[in-house]
Design a protein around this nucleic acid. Structure first.
Lengths: 189, 189
DNA sequence: ATATGACCGTTTGAGGAAAATGGTCAACCA
DNA sequence: TGGTTGACCATTTTCCTCAAACGGTCATAT
């Protein structure tokens, strides 16, 4: 059995269940059926082990975002589907949800850093898709970094923030109607 | 001398300097040259005194936002100036800045509530301006509540969040260029 | 060569005493 | 007698302490 893999799986399980702070290296070692010292032959410390797990999370999210896109479909439709899927990940993915909760409740610095890294990854992913659409001649050239940032923040606000201050969650059609008529329309060539 | 006014000024001073939690009723009484009991003849508790102070803050912000608008100028120009001014208030206004800091550091519930109320006030203010512009025939009819929310969140992200993850603050012209070409353009009739 | 867990220095948090705080109200004027 | 006050009260917050728990190491075992 690949010891490194055992450790990764044990860590993923523990981080997902208990969060970063409440996961102990002894615990991971026990779950992985491995001596504690062994973990340190593969990962130099707890934070690096954590980062390795989060890297997996990012790849899974990317894969799902790619999966919902339809080859040949308009930019708006794919961008919407991708962003919605990535934002749903915040509730869907056990580790992601746990980390968001820990960030809110405990403000664990390592968790804040990692959540920021995930958001940066999303923005850079969106930026990449915008650039491809521009190259294809579907969108007009623009400040891609800033447009990607705006799109992400807009979706995040509408999907994750709106519900906190209103007693009903925003319907997806209302989001589409809003952004289709505003941001997306103006990006078209 | 109006005792109620003395108390309000003392409270404003103390909340601005020390924040909500670190301000004590004994302190306010001392600054106001008033017995502690007197405060309770005008305000039923600390939180209501706080709310009265914040109401003043909201009115000042509204006044400044109105002051930067130019009669007859296009919606985009005035909306931009108004939102920028209200967001600058977060650094400019001593009490506002202190409360934002306290919310981040201490998470005082009374402060979170009040900050949320201020944001609601801003959104509702923006919504009102959008509705006026629609009535004037300058903008096309739209989901005003949602557009106001989007505009506020977009500005908040660009002005207040961008700097946290990038080493340079966003230049105002870059914000104008982005939003003028995207959201604002699509609102025009 | 690789894996291990007893061990180390540091951090954390439970527990409890002491100080401080928000709010009350009987006494006190003007 | 209506308005003001600060001593007072119950509760919360702060501070301190110390034992338990933690991340990380390394001599030893395999």
């Amino acid at each position: 059995m690949d010891r490194r893999q055992e450790i990764l799986e044990a860590a993923a399980k523990s981080f997902s269940l208990f969060g970063y702070k409440a996961t102990t290296m002894d615990q991971v070692a026990k779950i992985a059926n491995v001596g504690k010292g062994t973990i340190y032959t593969f990962f130099s410390n707890k934070e690096e082990l954590f980062n390795a797990i989060v890297l997996k999370l990012i790849n899974e999210m990317r894969a799902e975002a790619d999966a919902v896109a339809i080859e040949g479909a308009p930019f708006e439709q794919n961008a919407h589907a991708r962003l919605m899927r990535m934002l749903k990940f915040r509730e869907t993915h056990q580790l992601y949800a746990k980390l968001i909760d820990e960030e809110k409740e405990l403000r664990t610095p390592a968790v804040s850093e990692v959540l920021q890294a995930i958001e940066n990854e999303i923005v850079s992913y969106v930026k990449e898709k915008i650039e491809k659409a521009i190259a294809k001649g579907e969108l007009k050239p623009c400040d891609t970094e800033l447009v990607a940032y705006l799109l992400f923040k807009a979706y995040l606000s509408l999907v994750a923030d709106w519900g906190k201050t209103h007693d009903v969650e925003l319907a997806e059609e209302r989001i589409v109607a809003l952004l289709s008529g505003t941001i997306f329309k103006s990006l078209l060539l």
